[in-house]
């Protein structure tokens, strides 16, 4: 399998802050990646480095086999949709869709038109008069219809309601199936997207702390609930991701349980509860769950 992106020892420091800290990973061709992490973890900076919008302090970045910085032959094949994407003041949505095909050689105008109808986007309204969700819809449409071989979505749906977000996921999945390409989706709405992802990268305080196949991650952790002595006896020396206790009851999240161990636990009168991808990441990044909750 080919890698589209190869990163090694990548570090980005701003005055005193290390936004990306010695990151090493690769991104395989034609897969959907989730770049997950809390706000300020370094997701946007990492994507800006990968798209040549920012400059690395240290380390190597190779995209399509070359450095992306000021490299038209690389950047022409990248579409980067940012949450905070700015549009020219006087632009209406139609101006964006008129100019986008000049820059994206895979642009599909029919698909764009269908998406504009799906998201009920007013083409003639000035962008600065639009709602936050409508502005986000422009980005989502550009990102999908550009069909760039490498597409980055950085929290693309601020202000989009649940229905519109579902539309985005459905269109992304359907179009990706027809036109396979590499997609990196950065989000904190992990539960919503977890089934779309093939691979998961979790970044925390600038470091890549999880780089794993989504299917491997799913069900990799389990919460064991029961009386404190029983739980403690079962958990033993295992790595504990999280521990809660109420009165005589304990609830402990651990990783890697075999089928036999599950049976043993049930036999010991313990209850096993699944841990979602979102909960797992919350546990691993020591974050309050609130930060990953829906914003709309």
């Amino acid at each position: 399998m080919t890698n589209i992106i190869e990163v090694s020892g990548l570090t980005k420091r701003f005055s005193g802050v290390t936004a990306v800290d010695d990151a090493t990973f690769s991104v395989g061709e034609n897969k959907i990646y989730g770049l997950l992490g809390r706000n300020g973890a370094g997701k946007t900076t990492l994507m800006q480095l990968l798209t040549g919008q920012d400059f690395a302090t240290k380390g190597e970045i190779s995209v399509f086999g070359q450095s992306p910085v000021e490299n038209a032959s690389v950047l022409q094949h990248i579409s980067f949709i940012k949450e905070s994407q700015r549009y020219p003041e006087d632009f209406r949505a139609k101006h964006v869709f008129r100019s986008a095909p000049w820059f994206f050689s895979n642009w599909d105008a029919d698909f764009a038109e269908q998406l504009i109808a799906d998201f009920r986007l007013p083409l003639n309204r000035r962008i600065k008069k639009m709602s936050r969700g409508q502005v986000s819809a422009i980005g989502v449409i550009v990102g999908l219809a550009s069909r760039a071989p490498l597409t980055f979505f950085d929290e693309p749906y601020l202000g989009l309601d649940a229905v519109a977000r579902q539309t985005f996921y459905d269109r992304l999945l359907a179009d990706y199936a027809e036109h396979p390409r590499t997609v990196v989706l950065s989000t904190h709405l992990i539960d919503e997207v977890s089934n779309l992802l093939e691979h998961v990268l979790v970044i925390d305080e600038g470091r890549i702390i999880i780089d794993e196949d989504a299917e491997t991650l799913r069900g990799s952790a389990t919460t064991v609930v029961g009386t404190r002595p029983a739980v403690d006896a079962f958990v033993g020396a295992r790595e504990v991701l999280h521990r809660d206790a109420i009165g005589g009851l304990a609830s402990v999240t651990i990783t890697g349980l075999s089928a036999q161990e599950r049976k043993d636990a049930t036999a010991a009168g313990l209850e096993l509860a699944p841990v979602s991808l979102q909960q797992l990441i919350v546990r691993r990044t020591n974050t309050s769950e609130k930060e990953f909750e829906a914003i709309a």
Partner: peptide, 18 residues
């Protein structure tokens, strides 16, 4: 097809293929 399964269950096509 794989793609139809993926779209119907809203899952990644690679997962459906598996």
């Amino acid at each position: 097809s794989i793609n139809e399964f993926a779209a119907f269950y809203r899952i990644n096509p690679a997962t459906a293929l598996k």
